[in-house]
Design a protein around this nucleic acid. Structure first.
Lengths: 356, 356
DNA sequence: TATGCTGTGTGAAACCATTCAGAGCGCTGG
DNA sequence: CCAGCGCTCTGAATGGTTTCACACAGCATA
């Protein structure tokens, strides 16, 4: 593979001229320009991204730090970001943190020396990332936080309206007549989990309903967590008639727990999840969910990062995406009998268990 | 951020000595060594990966080219590769091709100038990639093909035993008494799709069974493909009593089609998928599948790449991973009535349709 | 004719780590 | 006592690009 010097010789011009032709950084007379382009074409020359990055103090790399690509929410985010990056001549470096702050910091530190133009982070938790991200900013890199925000975050971000999403879903359940609601939230050190719980409570308050703290269970954002917490909820008296799950994996776990307890969704209990993953379309019943576009989340983040690279001092942008309540088969009005006193409700629960 | 020169000054040694201490490329007396390490520690110095890569003609980057991270099979592969890469101080650059050969070539060409140490590719199709990958090899990079192989591939690879996997699944169905089998294959320009079909046919042959080509439908590796082709299969006379789907998404589509036709899996039709994705555990019925470890696929590939970087001229390795038949609720013996003549079987199909 | 200005090109410096030839030093064996 | 060797360490060259100060030609103006 030839280098720029050889192109310069082949075209009979200086190094600088080749650079100017290639980058459009200065006017070059047409004949020279043509000779350079010709030389590039015949040799198949490609500039070294390394040398270029070394010299410009920045590469066409976007670094992306996410919790875990195995969680089905994140591939969409990654794909959205990669598409935008690719379309602009950038590449994506992907790092998984497993929500481990130490690992996150390791990635953050190590990646910096590759001089990425931008950094897109889904924070592992509520830890303050200012120290690390500041060093990226000083190095001229754009930093965008998405999905959740670390403590004290005042930079660019893309999130969704978690409060509104959870509020709508909960209100919908209340509208159907549910009075015994439960929520299974994600880890409350994450802002998105916090906000979804906030939306849930706000809807209850609006309806003048109160709730025992035991009906709000906190767990990890996965199937196992949803399963375990649902088992607990199903034993409570009175048993909830609807569960607001703070993501789809939790909802999935809830569905499995309900099934294992020989209850039926939505006849006995309604479920609404959050995220709108593809895979909730294949369950029986199909799960209702607060849809958000993970793809858009990633795409907007990448665009935001690239915009900031182009215009370093434009005002901070904090994009908030809309959600959309998608009702499918997992919600219904509460069983009639639940309007009767507690003990009867309990009895029914047992008989149902026996029946199946 | 300081550079190496400043570390050298601070430690009172030369540039070369700093490099040797950091890379262990030569013996350095303990006192000097200590001073260097001390200087590194107090300044928080980190070597520039760019300068390092430029000089060594190779970076600690692993490039990974896959069809589409949104396909739930691939996150596992990526995660496996990223974990191994990370553990060895490497980073992963992720590229999606959408099975588009042109896009694949673009990525291949563009990535090269970042001088990755290794390249892991899931080929978009059967196209010959020798030209592109050869240039990586010439640049000293390790190239590993996984999951499927391009035409004429004679380099390192990690695949699974597709033939055996499909063979076992099919044999299992035959063992249950199924005689009207159907297969829905992936695109036959992909080696893995070819091999799974081969395993299917081999099992039939072993059992002395013949099959009408109409019962082997080719489609894309997704839900929509499985859905559409199953619709066709369900109209055939005699109707198949079992479907061997060449991946889980196809199997999922098949399940949905069967459901939509008011038939029942496994009572009317059995289904076996391929891949063993998590999401097939949440369907009703749970889908049986030929499990393969996508994580291991990625992890082995990354390890293979790193091994080759370390030992350039070791013999080519072509790793073939085992599969494991995981039977769940989607398979059963064929309905008894199917042993009766065709017309009766047809009738039953109608009556079932009317029932549901 | 001298001066200034524009429009184009040039060449060297800078970016930063690695590596290689060689220098300095102390020790050993003859 | 000296040649020779081994062990450390040094400093310059190297890799490929961008950028900046400057040069040069051509033209217009005074």
């Amino acid at each position: 593979m030839p280098n720029m010097k050889q192109i310069a010789e082949l075209a009979g011009v200086s190094l600088g001229t080749v650079s100017h032709v290639l980058n459009g950084t200065a006017r070059v007379r047409e004949p020279l320009r043509k000779r350079v382009l010709e030389a590039v074409k015949t040799t198949g020359y490609q500039p070294s991204q390394l040398a270029r990055g070394l010299r410009r103090d920045k590469t066409n790399i976007l670094a992306m730090i996410i919790p875990d690509i195995l969680n089905p929410f994140f591939p969409g985010v990654v794909r959205g970001a990669e598409d935008v990056a690719f379309a602009n001549g950038y590449r994506l470096v992907l790092c998984n943190t497993d929500n481990d702050h130490a690992k996150e910091v390791m990635h953050l530190n190590a990646l910096r020396t590759y001089l990425p133009s931008g950094l897109i982070v889904i924070p592992s938790d509520f830890s303050d990332l200012t120290a690390q991200t500041e060093s990226y900013r000083n190095a001229g890199a754009a930093v965008v936080c998405i999905d959740r925000l670390p403590r004290n975050w005042d930079g660019d971000s893309v999130t969704i309206d978690n409060v509104a999403g959870a509020y709508h879903a909960t209100s919908y359940l209340i509208g159907l007549g549910h009075r015994q609601l439960a929520a299974i939230t994600g880890p409350l050190h994450l802002t998105n989990a916090q906000d979804r719980l906030k939306g849930f409570r706000r809807a209850l308050k609006k309806a003048g309903m109160d709730i025992d703290p035991g009906y709000m269970q906190e767990t990890t954002f996965d199937r196992a967590g949803g399963f375990a917490k649902t088992k607990i909820l199903l034993k409570m008296i009175p048993r909830p008639t609807a569960i607001m799950a703070c993501n789809d994996l939790i909802a999935l776990g809830a569905l499995l727990a309900i099934r294992e307890e020989r209850l039926h969704c939505p006849d006995d209990i309604s479920i609404i999840g959050f995220d709108g993953l593809d895979l909730i379309e294949t369950t029986t019943p199909q799960l209702s969910s607060v849809y958000q576009s993970s793809y858009q989340l990633g795409a907007e983040a990448a665009q935001l990062a690239l915009d900031r690279v182009a215009q370093k001092d434009s005002p901070v942008r904090q994009i908030v995406l809309k959600t959309e309540l998608r009702i499918r088969d997992s919600v219904a009005a509460p069983p009639k009998i639940d309007k009767a006193p507690v003990l009867i409700s309990l009895k029914r629960s047992r008989s149902v268990g026996a029946r199946a």
